[in-house]
């Protein structure tokens, strides 16, 4: 496959990215199994070309879009982001993609749209994890419209200088770096602009444990484990833990989105 390159961005962190090996061999992508190595093992069979994303709902130009329509090569940026999983581990990942806002502007968001809903592909013959009803397929996620329009939120199509590997959500996925990783839905086939809060897979499964917002917050623990600290993948056997930062370290950019909200309630 062709190499990708993206323009450097001021929104990137200067922390050292994890290796491609780490990023592509430690994944939560239950469509390919619940083990961390399952996606690397099982995702190779996924057909990602052709691929289309149905964009609909409260938009001016609904329709079926190709990956190149949404993320044309000349618009690609490199975004080196921290990723914090709700399971209290983290990585630094050099994504290549486009701002989600640019895609939404392309399709024309109507004034009544308050939320954006996303869905992952359902194709059990290529996604063996979907043969069991461990989650209510398709995997669904959603953002408030102002979160979706935030410059940090991107649709990624590449990793390092390659097209996104299948286990990382090929060919196109969401990346919202100030939220727990499960919000950053992979292998997106549907984007719907809507006036009501969309269903989200983990929230529906266990609402006391996974909220709609799922903002990284060291002060609000998951009911069954602490979120105060995290372990960086690749830090070695005795690498220890580091403190988890509010909004995963993106508080300066995104805290204003939640001004006045009780974050312990809206977790």
């Amino acid at each position: 496959s062709l190499a990708l390159s993206g323009k450097a961005s001021a929104l990137s962190t200067d922390e050292k990215p994890n290796s491609l090996e780490e990023i592509t061999n430690y994944n939560n992508f239950y469509e390919f199994g619940t083990g961390k190595e399952d996606p690397a093992r099982n995702a190779g069979s996924l057909t990602t070309d052709p691929w289309s994303v149905e964009i609909g709902g409260l938009v001016d130009r609904p329709g079926s879009y190709s990956v190149a329509d949404l993320a044309p090569e000349n618009a690609l940026e490199e975004r080196i982001y921290r990723l914090r999983c709700v399971e209290a581990w983290s990585m630094v990942i050099p994504w290549i993609g486009v701002p989600l806002a640019s895609v939404l502007q392309k399709v024309g968001v109507q004034p009544g749209a308050k939320f954006v809903a996303f869905e992952t592909l359902v194709r059990p013959e290529e996604m063996p994890g979907q043969k069991r009803a461990i989650l209510d397929w398709p995997y669904r996620e959603g953002l408030r419209i102002d979160e979706a329009m935030h410059p940090l939120a991107i649709l990624a199509t590449g990793l390092y200088s390659d097209p996104l590997p299948n286990q990382n959500g090929a060919p196109i996925r969401l990346v919202v770096p100030w939220k727990y990783g499960f919000k950053s839905i992979k292998s997106v086939v549907r984007i719907t602009l809507t006036d009501r809060r969309p269903a989200c897979t983990w929230q529906d499964l266990q609402p006391s444990e996974y909220g709609f917002y799922a903002n990284v917050n060291p002060e609000v623990d998951h009911p069954r484990w602490s979120q105060a600290s995290e372990r960086r993948i690749g830090a070695g056997l005795f690498g220890g833990r580091q403190e988890t930062l509010m909004f995963n370290g993106y508080a300066d950019q995104v805290a204003s989105l939640y001004a006045g909200m009780d974050l312990a309630k809206n977790y």
Binding site: R224, W225, S226, A228, S229, R231, L237, F238, G239, G240, R241
Partner: peptide, 21 residues
């Protein structure tokens, strides 16, 4: 204690009395 928690005794103690697992 050593690898997972990196000897963060304070967090370990609060976790041990608070987290069901």
């Amino acid at each position: 204690i050593s690898m997972e928690m990196g000897f963060l005794w304070a967090q370990m103690l609060t976790d041990v009395v608070k987290r069901p697992y």
